[in-house]
Simulated scan of single mutants.
Amino acid sequence: MQPVILRTERLELSVPTEADIEAITAAAQDPEVPRWTTLPSPYERRHAEEFVEKAATWWEEESELTWAVRCEGRWVGMVGLHRVEKRGSAEIGFWMDAAARGHGYLTEAATAVVDFGFAEPLALARIQWRAIVGNGASARVAQKLGFRYEGILRQGLSDPRGRYDGWIAALLPDDDRTPVHWPVI
């Protein structure tokens, strides 16, 4: 699949490019990023270079669809659908530069990605969200998107640093996206 550009009222989402490498590298220095994501720590420029190169390949393979989020042409974050199965399921993942948090950009960008995932040509039956227990900021975004909390995955998340309990939530194409109460936030 060719990379798809998504546009919202304030944002443009497109495949990450070499022009984003410095911003990605700088944003990944925030200790909150590796705390809640699978990004390497310490995060070096080479990691961003490899990531940008892989992102284009993932689009070709349709395995992961990754968008750089830009506001007024400036990189502010990442949103992606991972492990995409056509007419099946995918997992949404996201993170933002610290300076971009608190402006609603992530919810706006993720809404566009969810809409894309449920539309043709993907026509996903389910989009799930997972996060390490305690990542309240990520949970609040998923809740705003209309995801339904499903429970805790005991030691269900892992990265090279270890195993973690994880929250899981999901959204189906016909779900009412009105936020509902989550018992964990």
Results as ranks from 00 to 15, higher is better:
173 P>D: 06
6 L>N: 03
23 A>R: 07
172 L>G: 04
117 G>V: 03
184 V>Y: 00
33 V>W: 04
97 D>A: 15
116 F>Y: 15
178 T>H: 13
98 A>F: 11
151 G>A: 13
14 S>N: 07
140 R>F: 08
96 M>L: 15
9 E>V: 06
51 F>E: 06
48 A>L: 06
33 V>A: 10
42 P>D: 09
83 R>A: 06
63 S>G: 14
156 G>E: 08
143 Q>F: 00
56 A>F: 07
176 D>P: 07
93 G>L: 13
126 R>V: 05
137 A>S: 13
183 P>N: 00
60 E>C: 04
139 A>V: 05
161 R>F: 12
59 W>F: 02
87 R>P: 04
39 L>G: 07
113 V>Q: 06
112 A>N: 06
85 E>T: 11
154 R>L: 11
3 P>H: 00
115 D>A: 06
63 S>K: 14
112 A>G: 05
182 W>K: 02
43 Y>L: 11
160 P>R: 02
58 W>D: 05
92 I>R: 10
21 I>K: 00
180 V>W: 04
10 R>K: 08
64 E>K: 15
17 T>Q: 07
80 G>D: 12
110 A>H: 09
181 H>Y: 12
184 V>T: 01
96 M>Y: 15
9 E>N: 09
29 Q>T: 06
41 S>F: 12
71 C>E: 14
44 E>T: 13
143 Q>P: 00
76 V>G: 03
88 G>W: 04
102 G>R: 14
72 E>S: 10
136 G>Q: 15
162 G>E: 08
48 A>V: 03
2 Q>Y: 10
68 A>E: 01
171 L>T: 04
128 Q>H: 15
155 Q>D: 10
135 N>S: 12
185 I>T: 05
118 F>P: 09
172 L>P: 05
182 W>P: 02
47 H>N: 14
177 R>C: 12
67 W>S: 03
105 Y>I: 08
123 A>G: 15
139 A>D: 05
94 F>T: 14
131 A>F: 05
59 W>H: 06
136 G>C: 13
61 E>S: 12
75 W>R: 00
159 D>V: 11
151 G>F: 08
152 I>T: 15
121 P>R: 10
102 G>D: 13
75 W>Q: 02
105 Y>T: 03
26 A>M: 08
144 K>T: 05
7 R>F: 01
92 I>H: 07
133 V>N: 06
3 P>G: 00
129 W>G: 08
117 G>S: 11
97 D>K: 09
114 V>D: 02
99 A>M: 13
9 E>L: 08
115 D>W: 08
91 E>C: 09
46 R>Q: 15
107 T>E: 09
97 D>S: 15
147 F>G: 06
56 A>C: 06
